[in-house]
Nucleic acid binder design. Structure first.
Lengths: 215, 215
DNA sequence: CGGATTCTCCCCGTCGCGGGGGATCCGCGG
DNA sequence: CCGCGGATCCCCCGCGACGGGGAGAATCCG
């Protein structure tokens, strides 16, 4: 049985391109297209795709809202957010909305199909480029005025300790705060990085260069 | 209150050196020394040190056995195994016996005191050099006849999937085996790497070069 | 033929993790 | 002034992770 995909993008050219790439694969199949977020719920209900390729910027209901609504329903599909720029301001919102991963429009066809297969398996798609942007600025000591990093200082500190292998109680002891506080920060970090658990957060930290192997 | 340390090594020169390094720190204090594993239990019972610096190779009761006995008691101290070579064959056994970390005899004083402080805090000491040895040979495709790696092929495979962020059910699905089997492998990997949870295992995988950031 | 190793599967229990709420306090800026 | 983001703490709950057992089957080797 093939992986069924729904394409949501207001640009017809993009839809055609994605459809061509996906339908060229024997194990993937495009079951529908939408040009607006408003059509998405009904299409998903009808076709029950495993994966939804969702554009972020669309007139009317944008990809963020559409994603949020989709995931509120029972047994939702995986949402793979499609964006033009890795530094899109909406990237963070999409993660919070529950998107499983990202896909740049300039990604090569092989990357597109692989991304679809990965999320269809139910695995998170850690996207170094996007994550690096989120964490950005911090990695190499750069606390420059940018604040481009969506992680707050506290969250970045917690992530570092997570990447050092500390448990929540240990982090709490180190920072001299309550475990509940640590849990909140950890939860925020997971949401912002778009990952499922602390292990994936640590992987993201390494892959993004946020922490570097001592070797 | 300072961190109390017990030194166990059959070589007096080593004991003197370690004592000098440790007693030079205001927050550390050597409460006793032993030249043989046989004396350890009574010394620990009397002085209740937080940390025991334990040589592996000793006449009579070696460090492995002594560690095993120590940790069988209630409220045991942390054991920091001291070894001359990172590739000591006993490294693995010491991990299984419950040692919290490793220390090379050629470590610089600053490293020694830091290691003591870390284990005293109750945190595991991930020792790249030692872990690299354990995982060794595999990292770069080298399935050479050595089998020096204490990880079996299956365990190495499971570690790779862990380092890819997969959960146990996901790994089971990927390998087409039961979740119980995966749990066994994961447990073995944790024991062999001397780490507490999968997050630390992934950290060890990165730090040892077993997996390399894609960048 | 043992014995060792590896891989496989299972039961049990505990506990930390993560998700869902909500709440307070602060400082900054409109 | 009030809104908002950040940091702090609290509750409940479900599930997965982990430890410690045991146990069967296949393989290889002395």
């Amino acid at each position: 049985m093939s992986i069924e995909v729904l394409i949501v993008d207001d640009d017809e050219l993009v839809r055609i391109g994605l459809r061509a790439i996906i339908d060229a694969q024997p194990d993937l199949r495009v079951v529908g297209e939408a040009a607006d977020g408003i059509e998405v719920p009904s299409l998903v209900a009808r076709h029950r795709p495993q994966v939804v390729l969702m554009d972020v910027r669309m007139p009317g209901i944008d990809g963020i809202q559409a994603t949020r609504r989709l995931l509120a329903a029972a047994d939702p599909p995986r949402v793979l957010v499609v964006t033009t720029f890795a530094n899109d301001e909406y990237v963070y919102d999409a993660l919070r909305a529950g998107a499983t991963g990202f896909l740049l429009k300039r990604a090569r066809p092989a990357e597109v199909v692989e991304a679809v297969r990965v999320v269809a398996r139910g695995e998170s798609l850690l996207f170094p480029a996007a994550i690096r942007r989120l964490v950005g600025a911090y990695g190499r000591q750069g606390v420059d005025g940018l604040r481009a990093a969506r992680l707050t200082e506290r969250e970045a500190e917690v992530l570092r300790l997570m990447a050092a292998g500390l448990s929540n109680p240990e982090i709490a002891a180190r920072l001299v705060v309550g475990v509940e506080t640590v849990k909140t920060h950890v939860g925020n970090v997971l949401a912002k990085l778009g990952v499922r658990d602390r292990t994936q957060a640590v992987i993201a930290a390494y892959e993004s260069g946020f922490v570097v192997p001592a070797g």
